[in-house]
Write a protein that binds this DNA or RNA. Structure first.
Lengths: 120, 120
DNA sequence: TGAATAGATGAACAGCTATTCAGCCATCGC
DNA sequence: GCGATGGCTGAATAGCTGTTCATCTATTCA
């Protein structure tokens, strides 16, 4: 069974229209949002562009660390950069990602862990 | 500035109604979905309950590995377990998570990386 | 030009984690 | 009870990654 066949089998079996590469891509997105520091950075520039320095101040971390994270987020196109003078402003580019994030933030804030289901 | 104050400052500055603990909780969710193997497991039982063995077969990995991952997913309440005889079926419990996942899978599958925006 | 500010980069390190392997517990059919 | 099947658990390991520190580039202002 080849790799392509395996991916096909997975897509068939799951009923989810998504192949191996797309799963990897999705996983990579989640990975980038899975680090608390990075997630805070993303949330910080969800609704408006924020400069690197401002982000560092808000989160009380070093500009260097912010920059490192921003590079990853920029590379994955989760954030877009916009230079104004000597400052660089970052913001969430994809509207779909933005709404998903807003949605998830609300979901968590509303405490969706109220129901406990136990198997017999 | 205390920890609580910092969290408050963050919530204020970002405009996102979410505190430190909730950010951690959200990050943890994303972390669980960020591993390709684990993500495949979740996607496999998105729409219907799947047994451990079946999951292992579909993904062509060892039942042991599946079980390890399932324990984490169950602990985080991302998946719910349902024992039938000697088989245990798992499925995505939270409808909100399920729709988010379906949505993101579609988003990735449709290739949302078509537009490249470059800063001046 | 020179100083200063804002970000970016590279190396180095500590901590975490996905995977494998071996063995254990529970449930069903004989 | 006995064997077989299905799933769980614990230890061990290899690979990855978030953070820090020092340094470097780019842009503005005097």
């Amino acid at each position: 069974m080849s790799g392509a066949d395996k991916a096909e089998a997975f897509a068939m079996a799951t009923g989810v229209r998504i192949n191996e590469d797309e799963v990897m891509e999705l996983a990579e997105m989640f990975r980038l949002m899975s680090d608390p520091t990075r997630l805070k950075i993303i949330l910080a520039c969800l609704d408006q562009p924020v400069s690197v320095g401002a982000t560092a101040d808000i989160l009380a971390i070093s500009p260097s660390l912010v920059s490192h994270h921003l590079r990853l987020l920029r590379a994955a196109r989760l954030l877009t950069a916009d230079r104004r003078g000597r400052q660089v402003f970052y913001m969430v580019g994809d509207p779909h990602i933005r709404s998903m994030l807003t949605d998830m933030a609300d979901h968590v804030a509303e405490g969706g862990d109220s129901e406990i289901i136990e198997g017999t």
